[in-house]
Amino acid sequence: MRHLLSIADFSKAEAISILDTANELARVSDGAVKKLPTLRGRTIVNLFAEDSTRTRISFEAAAKRLSADVINFSAKGSSVSKGESLKDTAMTLQAMGADAVVIRHFASGAAQRLADSQWMSGSVVNAGDGTHEHPSQALLDAFTIRKHLGLGKSDLEGLSVAIVGDVLHSRVARSNILLLSKLGAKVVLVAPPTLLPVGVESWPVSISYDLDSVIPFVDVVMMLRVQQERMTEMYFPNAREYSRYFGLNSDRMKSMKPGAIVMHPGPMNRGLEISAEVADSSRSVITEQVTNGVSVRMAILYVLLTGGALEAGGN
């Protein structure tokens, strides 16, 4: 594996192997060892053409725990948004000798463009591209589900996961749908019809417009963030109505299965898609998602950046 662009690019076995690796890395980091020499001398660039402090910090922590050198290239308000092309940026990174580029970009497919082009030779990690995918988030979500529901090293066969909210614009949803169904979970999307894409029928999911009828039967409720700009684009009448039908509040939480968990990729709009009581409840694993993010991203960097010379014919 050279790049991490889309969940669609790898097999179930590969996905499980990343989760298992993350599991061992989490144990190492939980113990006395805070820093591993694994990627010493390798350079990882965080290229963020869109704000995302939490994802950047998570990747940065992961890279540093593996002793990689990290360069943060926050392109928002810098050259990329001032018209420097992705090509020129990529060639700059190549000249700096980047072994891997972790890219967050507002354009769907930006990571793939970077990987497919001849502009640079390093590994490309998609840290969220437009409304396309966010594979590391899906991996950490799957990791969290597996760990929290005590599934050890198995897949997610037999579990039901509800993904609730703005599926249309959500890269987190797209990656999770692919990964969770690959791992054997049943995925149900719950959203107003305006926030489901045309063509959703071809996805390996079932669909509901009624959150109350879904909540009692699922093991995981994954809430998606509602972007402020959706309010003005007539996807729903107003925030109050959205919250009434698709928000997760304490009343709805009461009807959840015993042991079922609540997830959210963050950042949350408390009071809109999720109430403060739910976000802070014992069912919420939201902060655990953040913790697991570092281990999962360490595993991703480990898998992508070891053996690189082998693929290049170095052995």
Binding site: D20, E24, G31, P37, G308, A309, N315
Partner: peptide, 23 residues
């Protein structure tokens, strides 16, 4: 004591599964 993450030839070898370390 798993030593995979401490190897000096990681660039040259396909990534190996990490085994448990139990102290």
């Amino acid at each position: 004591l798993d030593i995979t993450l401490f190897r000096d030839d990681l660039r040259l070898r396909a990534p190996k599964a990490i085994m448990p370390t139990t102290i």
